[in-house]
Design a protein around this nucleic acid. Structure first.
Lengths: 146, 146
DNA sequence: AGTTCAAATTGTACTATACAACTAGAACGC
DNA sequence: GCGTTCTAGTTGTATAGTACAATTTGAACT
């Protein structure tokens, strides 16, 4: 096996390990904000509000799944729905103040965890690893292991 | 923000993206063998058989979860339980021939998907990326984003 | 022998997910 | 302008994977 083939094997194995761990602990990380909720809130913040359909498309989730997630987030007071004045089918979702606060808090906590784990890495390695991950994810259109 | 801090942000973001995608598509990849089942079978192959308790410890899963996974895999004919002669509480789990075949088949299919996605990468980058992932996962004792 | 420890199962509940059926509203075509 | 078709969202139903608590069974150690 060439060095390249061997490296691909390793990448596969390590990505699988990471995916499995993420799967198993998705709900344990931040009891008040699951990984899915976190990414949905993050998307809302980034876009400054969007429709449930946009979330479904962006995350390749079924609209029913998003509908229920959104309902839960609204129940928790983290987002609010504003009826679109021009199209009454549409609900534009926005973070509430409480949503912004919790998002910021979880972001800080996650950032601290990553920093802690990467604290021993030389800057040069961090920069290269980050670039590789971006490149890897950019190449993903819904393929295996996602 | 320093280059190192910025890289950590990127690593966090990209790992989160990957984890979310993996979470969402865990069941879609290989309908006949979920990511969890795949890793359990892989562990059995690697170790040449082990106990349910070992699987639970290694993957940080509850024993009840493993018990049900194992029951499903046995029902599907992929593994078999052998009572330990010395300790009758213990069931040593082994792959059946069908289990070995399906594991090999899914491994091939996953390998092909990874190769396809990484086909444009220079060997040098593959090797470095693989090393970074190993290092990253090795530092994970159950921390955030897993 | 009795207590405590360990392996596994079972009961129950929750979260995230998909698919299908449905409702409500918009837009198009003629 | 009215039916057809499209779009946004909800709800019903089912499944997978998970955890925690209670239980059973067998081992080990006083």
């Amino acid at each position: 096996m060439s060095a390249a083939e061997s490296a691909v094997e390793t990448i596969q194995r390590e990505m699988t390990i990471f995916a499995r761990r993420a799967r198993a602990s998705a709900g344990r990380m931040h009891p008040e904000l699951s990984l899915v909720s976190y990414t949905l809130l993050g998307h809302l913040e980034e876009r400054g509000g969007c429709r449930a359909t946009d979330l479904a498309a962006h995350y390749a989730l079924d609209k029913s799944t998003v509908s229920r997630q959104v309902a839960a987030l609204e129940r928790a007071g983290l987002i609010e729905r504003r009826l679109d004045a021009e199209d009454h089918r549409v609900q534009v979702l926005h973070l509430t103040e409480a949503g912004q606060e919790i998002l910021a808090q979880v972001t800080r906590s996650r950032r601290a965890a990553f920093r802690e784990r990467l604290v021993d890495w030389p800057e040069e390695d961090l920069v290269r690893f980050a670039a590789y991950l971006e490149r890897y994810n950019a190449g993903a259109g819904g393929a295996d292991a996602e």
